[in-house]
Amino acid sequence: MQPNHPYVGLWVTDDGHVRHELLPNGRYVEARGRRERAYLGRYEVTGTHIEYWDDTGFTADGDFVDPDTLHHGGMVLRRQPGDSTSGR
């Protein structure tokens, strides 16, 4: 179980193509374009750094540069306000 941290929620690229949902249970769901559940896996946040482990074995990481901006894999994702979108 991922401890509570301020980054749980939905993160989206400016063009809306990539969407990461960081769930409070330490799991994530990544959507790409029309593929709503393109990638699933777990994550851990340490300070402002995030590590991802996809269920297929792929790994990635990123950094939160401020409370509303995530740099990940050459992309910039921004926090989306509102409720969690889990269960898509």
Rank of each mutant, 00 (worst) to 15 (best):
A38L: 12
R42W: 04
G62D: 07
N25G: 07
R78Q: 07
G62A: 13
Y43F: 12
R37C: 07
F64H: 07
V45L: 01
V8G: 03
D68Y: 13
R37K: 14
R88F: 04
L70M: 05
E36N: 13
T56G: 11
D68G: 06
V45E: 01
D66C: 05
S84G: 11
V45N: 00
G74Q: 08
F64Y: 11
H17W: 15
D61I: 03
N25V: 00
R42E: 08
P81F: 09
V12G: 02
H49Q: 15
W11K: 04
G9N: 09
V8A: 07
V18N: 12
D68S: 10
R19N: 05
D54G: 05
R27N: 08
R32H: 14
G26T: 02
L23H: 13
W11F: 10
H20Y: 15
T59G: 00
H72M: 05
R78N: 01
V18R: 11
G57T: 05
P6T: 09
F64I: 04
R78Y: 12
H20D: 15
V12R: 13
R35D: 15
D61H: 12
Y7S: 06
L22K: 11
H20T: 12
D15W: 13
G9P: 02
V29W: 13
Y28R: 01
H49C: 05
H17M: 14
Q80R: 15
P81E: 13
A60N: 11
Q2L: 10
G47M: 00
R42I: 14
M1Y: 14
R35Y: 10
G26M: 03
H20E: 14
D14E: 12
L23P: 01
Y39C: 05
A31N: 07
R32A: 12
R34W: 07
E44I: 12
H72Q: 14
